[in-house]
């Protein structure tokens, strides 16, 4: 339990990841499915941000002349978060565009229904 207290953010982010993952996998509504994707990705960013921050340290920008490394935090996790956000934004945009086209054609957001309609169409 002690470990859970110290790694509070990490534990929460892994739980969030699980929620997002299952949403993306099992949710039938396409919009909610891709909301699940965003929860999943955001959980990973929370994990990285929590790992990258050390209490009492500052961003590695030299302003008051301190060159001691223990005064600063590692900037790479923040960089990774930014890269990840770019990736997830583009994936989300792509998926939503796809969902919109599916909705225009089938008039539904339910994946099962769409699969059903598509099979019927193909069977003709």
């Amino acid at each position: 339990m002690n470990h859970l207290g110290t790694n509070f953010y990490e534990a929460v982010s892994v739980i969030l990841f699980g929620i997002g993952f299952m949403n993306l996998l099992l949710q039938n509504n396409l919009i909610k499915k891709f909301i699940g994707l965003n929860i999943m990705d955001t959980a990973v960013y929370l994990f990285l941000a929590a790992q990258g921050y050390i209490f009492g340290r500052v961003a590695p920008i030299l302003t008051d002349g301190v060159i001691d490394a223990s005064y600063y935090v590692n900037p790479i996790p923040a960089g990774l978060v930014l890269t990840g956000i770019v990736v997830s934004v583009s994936v989300t945009a792509f998926s939503l565009a796809l969902v919109q086209r599916l909705y225009k054609h089938y008039g539904s957001l339910n994946m099962d229904e769409i699969m059903q309609l598509s099979r019927e169409e193909e069977g003709e």
């Binding site: 994707l37 990705d41 990973v44 994936v91 796809l98 969902v99 599916l102 699969m115 169409e121």
Partner: peptide, 19 residues
């Protein structure tokens, strides 16, 4: 329409993998 359904399926499974 079939290709869009196929893509959605492919996209979802791929995203689970990359996640």
């Amino acid at each position: 329409p079939q290709s869009m359904v196929g893509t959605t399926h492919y996209l979802v499974i791929s995203l689970l993998g990359s996640g």
